[in-house]
């Protein structure tokens, strides 16, 4: 591998890592604040992708479809929290795993009924449809770079929201001692509902903006879920910064693993996870 291809592969790795972060951030947020293991997280990613496809077909405008999709998934998140998740906060993780696994099955079936089992493509929005030539035969799609930019913006936005706003302060307080927060007269139920809806919207947004490069197909959520858990575990459960760092590490390890040791490409990410966990059993960052 010459230096120039090395740089391109570095770009590939970072870009993949940022996308992983976007999907995993909702998962780690919901776990960190509310202590919920949400196996249905991947389903929200899938729902987002299918919404992007269906809404883009209806409206003919991808940007509009994403905005509509975000509104719809926030509403979905609020409803799900009120009907299902609210009852799980005080329960053992086993209950959470059981119920959210059940939700995966329900969402897959609903997806099959509403949208069918076909593979669909979503057109890259015209604004970003160009490619930048890198070498004589390789070019880089602008849309991939745009996704990375969105991921960076969202990471920044999450940081500001949680660390720099009053709402963020309440969220953090609720995560460390929710009874005391309630005693101080803060409506923690409402905050939980909001955080959950945010988590759902993050996953769905990831699905929506990834749809043009990933296509839309049944079970796409399942593929994403596993790698999301790896991100969260390496990063330290509940830590948003940890998730960002872990996602970037995984992006790089996966990218270079595939190129340098193609026969063991599937293993590289898990080897990384094992090494990190041996070194720091609680992940890179403890919940912060």
């Amino acid at each position: 591998m010459d230096f120039y291809s090395f740089l391109i592969q570095l770009l590939n790795g970072l870009q993949y890592g940022l996308l992983l972060f976007l999907v995993a951030s909702g998962l780690t947020l919901v776990f960190g604040i509310m202590g919920i293991i949400n196996l249905a997280h991947g389903s929200f990613y899938m729902i987002g992708a299918y919404m992007a496809w269906a809404l883009a077909e209806q409206t003919g405008n991808f940007g509009l479809a994403v905005l509509l999709g975000i509104v719809l998934t926030v509403i979905l998140g609020i409803l799900l929290e009120a009907v299902f998740y609210r009852h799980l906060y005080k329960r053992d993780h086993l209950y959470q795993v059981l119920m959210t696994y059940g939700l995966i099955l329900v969402f897959e079936e609903l997806r099959s009924i509403i949208w069918g089992d076909d593979v669909h493509g979503v057109a890259v929005p015209a604004l970003f449809s160009a490619s930048i030539p890198l070498t004589d035969n390789l070019s880089y799609p602008v849309y991939r770079l745009a996704i990375s930019a969105v991921c960076v913006l969202l990471a920044l936005g999450m940081y500001l929201l949680i660390q720099r706003t009053r709402l963020g302060m309440m969220i953090r307080a609720g995560a460390s001692n929710n009874e005391m927060v309630q005693a101080l007269g803060i409506n923690i139920k409402l905050i939980y509902t909001l955080v959950f809806a945010l988590g759902v919207a993050l996953a769905a947004t990831a699905g929506m903006i990834a749809a043009p490069i990933s296509s839309v197909f049944p079970n796409m959520g399942g593929q994403v879920l596993i790698i999301c858990f790896v991100v969260v575990v390496i990063g330290g459960i509940g830590s948003v910064w940890g998730a960002l760092l872990a996602a970037l590490m995984i992006g790089l390890v996966d990218t270079f693993g595939k190129v340098l040791v193609p026969d063991y490409a599937g293993l590289s990410v898990y080897v990384l996870m094992a090494v990190v966990l041996l070194w720091r059993p609680e992940g890179l960052f403890k919940r912060g």
Binding site: M1, D2, S5, I8, Q9, N12, G13, Q15, Y16, V119, G121, T135, N137, L138, R144, I213, S214, S215, V216, F217, P218, M220, Q223, D254, T255, F256, K258, V259, A265, G266
Partner: peptide, 30 residues
């Protein structure tokens, strides 16, 4: 797995005359 970007970069740097593959369904589309 459907994250092909790294391998496509590799293909571009190897510069073969042709690429042959086996993928199907959603992964194939991607």
């Amino acid at each position: 797995n459907v994250e092909f970007q790294a391998l496509l970069t590799e293909i571009a740097s190897i510069k073969p005359d042709a690429v042959a593959c086996f993928f199907a369904g959603g992964g194939g589309a991607k």
